[in-house]
């Protein structure tokens, strides 16, 4: 009724992300302290606290808050997801895997600490993720925490990250692969952990089964979306803009969306995935769903 009254407040995504990422960074810093043996813990912290946009932990917290939970219920899980993500990057960068020297604009873990420590630091982060959820989650029933742990485990192993990585490695240089293979790789390599992030948040926040499943579908769409955009950026941006080695998919002769669908076709697919994702949020309180809607748009439009 007054001029100041804004009937449709716009959601300030940038400050939301900054504030949440900041809280997550503090929680991550506190979760892995420098202990004996110092070098392993330094190695874990080097990669875990290397920055990054914290998309996965923020998704976890946003999903938790969307279904009515508090940030604190999801924070240990959010940190655990980031630990797993970091671990997979450390191991993927190893010489026997993708052999990368640069990650998030810094030398990769094994370049700094050696391959042996990098393998151990990854293993330790993986294990600690589970320990952290199991002992640090508060305000949630043990039954829900156990359910969250089951989801997390599934998103990492042979039904998740690892499966994607295996098929990805095997697909290099093969000519007869199609969109189905590509989808399998990314549904596992990228989407599984994003799905884990969202689903863990929804479970820990007290979501109903129906809410959890809606958010699962949302996460699967933005997971694929994430990879389609990644593939587009790999061929359209420089290493400096990306903070990691650009064009490496081409060099490795990897199957990518632009290769299969062209740049324009890939962009059209990205648009459809974003739309499908947001469709899943339509029955939630739109004000509460604003962070996830904005996150989907952010993933679709990111430049690095």
């Amino acid at each position: 009724e007054t001029l100041e009254d804004n009937p449709k407040p716009t959601f300030d995504f940038k400050s939301y992300m900054l504030q949440k990422a900041n809280t997550v960074n503090q929680a991550l810093d506190a979760s892995v302290s420098l202990r004996e043996p110092v070098k392993i813990h330094e190695s874990m912290r080097y990669s875990l606290l290397a920055g990054g946009k914290r998309v996965r932990p923020v998704l976890c917290i946003a999903a938790c808050e969307l279904v009515g939970g508090d940030e604190s219920m999801a924070m240990p899980a959010a940190c655990a997801i980031e630990m797993i993500h970091t671990m997979s990057l450390i191991h993927d960068d190893l010489p026997c895997m993708d052999n990368d020297d640069l990650r998030r604009g810094k030398p990769t873990n094994h370049k700094v600490f050696g391959e042996d420590v990098a393998v151990l630091a990854g293993d330790a982060l993986l294990a600690f993720a589970f320990e952290h959820i199991a002992i640090s989650t508060t305000g949630v029933t043990p039954a829900r925490i156990v359910r969250a742990i089951a989801e997390l485990a599934k998103s990492i192993g042979t039904e998740g990250l690892v499966a994607g990585q295996v098929v990805d490695i095997r697909s290099e240089g093969q000519k007869d692969l199609g969109i189905k293979d590509l989808e399998f790789i990314h549904e596992h390599k990228t989407a599984a952990l994003l799905e884990g992030a969202v689903v863990l948040g929804a479970i820990l926040g007290g979501g109903t089964n129906e809410e959890v499943e809606k958010l699962r579908t949302f996460a699967r769409c933005i997971g694929l979306l994430f990879q389609v955009v990644d593939d587009i950026l790999d061929v359209t941006k420089s290493s400096k803009e990306l903070g990691k080695t650009a064009g490496k998919d081409l060099v490795a002769d990897k199957l990518t969306y632009p290769k299969l669908l062209g740049i324009e076709g890939s962009k059209a697919l990205a648009e459809k995935l974003n739309k499908d994702a947001q469709q899943q949020l339509s029955e939630f309180d739109q004000e509460k769903a604003a962070p996830l809607i904005a996150l989907a748009n952010y993933i679709a439009n990111r430049q690095n």
């Binding site: 671990m87 293993d123 294990a127 485990a153």
Partner: peptide, 17 residues
């Protein structure tokens, strides 16, 4: 490396399920 990375979570998954 990947077999190890998969066996850790499979262990936890096996317990909870």
């Amino acid at each position: 490396i990947l077999a190890g990375d998969a066996l850790f979570p499979l262990g936890f998954q096996h317990i909870v399920s």
